[in-house]
Amino acid sequence: MSKTFRNFPIHLTLILIFSFMLFPIFVMLSTSLQTYENIFNWPPEWFPAEPQWGNYINVWFGEYQFKTPFFNSLIVATLTAIITIIIAFPASYALSRFHFAGRNSMLFFVLVTQMFSPVVLIVGLYQLAQSYSLLNTLAGLVITNCAFTLPMAVWLLHGYLKNIPVTLEQAAFVDGCSRIKGVFKIVMPLAAPGIAMSAIYAFIMAWNDLLIPLIFISKSSLRPVSLALTDFAGQNVIYWHEMMAASILTTLPIAVMFSFVQKYFIKGFMAGSIKE
């Protein structure tokens, strides 16, 4: 009892900060369940008496056709994650197990590119995509996304693999197991959480990216969610209730994925250092 009372100012401060942090989410949910006319009511009806779940159906199938960008993003983000892991895993394995000249500079290169603003690469990437007819294709988005997800994935995976003891594989090698087999049978299962974390991170990065589709995609049927939302917000009449429904739908897959890897996340950033 006395503890609760003593902690009262702490909780009060936290509640104040958290109202700022959660207010936009609350408004997003509330608006997504209003009728169009109700949005413009002052005082606003925070908790709509008749929640309009139909808004979600309308934004999905109706004028905004949000299902198209949603599936585009799903395809692009999934393929980005898969390709990222296929390329990043063997490379991170080599960086964590072999000692060779240029290893440290390679790690530094990966770190530098990870910090790049997409703006630095985008002109060159745009011209590459143009010459290989990859503009206005989902494949173009996937490949370009990988240029930004790969460094991050190598960084995270290298940090993870470094902490898996080499002795486990070495025992298998002594028993006559080939290295490739050892990697598949021993290292990969142990590294599964790290692989999942990197894949999900790549998925999230691809899902959230705006700059690449902004430059690569002009066909409206190929827009991913980020571009679709930005485009809708630029129109003269904005149906905010449906926009907010679309925003919630865009957040859901990321929220689900993130909840799986959250605990590895901070560790990954702290541990992924260049030094042995």
């Binding site: 959660l22 936009p24 408004v27 959230n208 930005t230 865009t250 957040t251 929220a255 909840s259």
Partner: peptide, 15 residues
């Protein structure tokens, strides 16, 4: 605290 964290940047901007 996780809720604003998982919100995609573009969604946050639109909201």
């Amino acid at each position: 605290l996780m809720i604003p964290w998982v919100t995609p940047m573009v969604v946050a901007a639109v909201a």
